[in-house]
């Protein structure tokens, strides 16, 4: 296939991927079993009593009653309407301020959640740094092993197996 034809097919495939991205964004809300954070930001009270799964950044942890360790947290949740804070009761997780958590539970009045389960996504704000670093190692590894076996042929503008490999 000539380079121009390849380019056309490439653009067509990328266009379909973008199309999927548009479809997903428009249809996701209908298929999600829980209210989205944007729906919560717009009209929280309409969803009180519903189950929800929210991702948030831990801003503060405190003790309610006489429990140790902390059993209540304030998390910041992102939405298309901007970030907002929620209070989580029954917060049982080993996480530092700035860490990221998933909270699954019931929505209660005043932007409060009663957590059924909490998963720590990032135990601290610095966890993302680890993910980026380890992923950079992965990307470097792929490139190294790939170009040990393949070379870019400048005549055909395509990858060709190395015959010296």
């Amino acid at each position: 296939m000539r380079p121009l034809a390849r380019l056309v097919v490439l653009f067509a495939l990328v266009a379909v991927v973008v199309g999927l991205g548009v479809h997903y964004e428009s249809a996701d809300e209908r298929h999600s079993p829980y209210p989205t954070t944007t729906e919560l930001a717009e009209d929280y009270d309409a969803h009180v009593g519903a189950d929800a799964l929210v991702f948030g950044t831990v801003r503060d942890q405190s003790v309610r009653g006489n429990a140790t360790p902390p059993n209540q947290a304030t998390i910041e949740v992102e939405s298309d309407e901007g970030p907002f804070e929620m209070t989580v009761h029954g917060f049982d997780a080993d996480v530092r301020r700035g860490g990221t958590v998933q909270v699954y539970g019931v929505l209660e009045p005043d932007r409060t959640m009663d957590a059924r389960n909490v998963v720590v996504v990032n135990p601290a704000g610095s966890s993302n740094l680890y993910k980026y670093a380890i992923s950079a190692v992965g990307a470097a590894l792929v490139l190294v092993v790939f170009f040990r076996e393949w070379r870019f042929d400048t005549d055909s503008l395509a990858f060709e197996v190395r015959d010296d490999g």
Binding site: L13, V16, L20
Partner: peptide, 16 residues
């Protein structure tokens, strides 16, 4: 129009 990257990490995204 509104767009999400989520399909990149799905079966459809991988196929394309």
């Amino acid at each position: 129009v509104p767009f999400s990257y989520a399909p990149v990490s799905t079966l459809g995204g991988v196929l394309l």
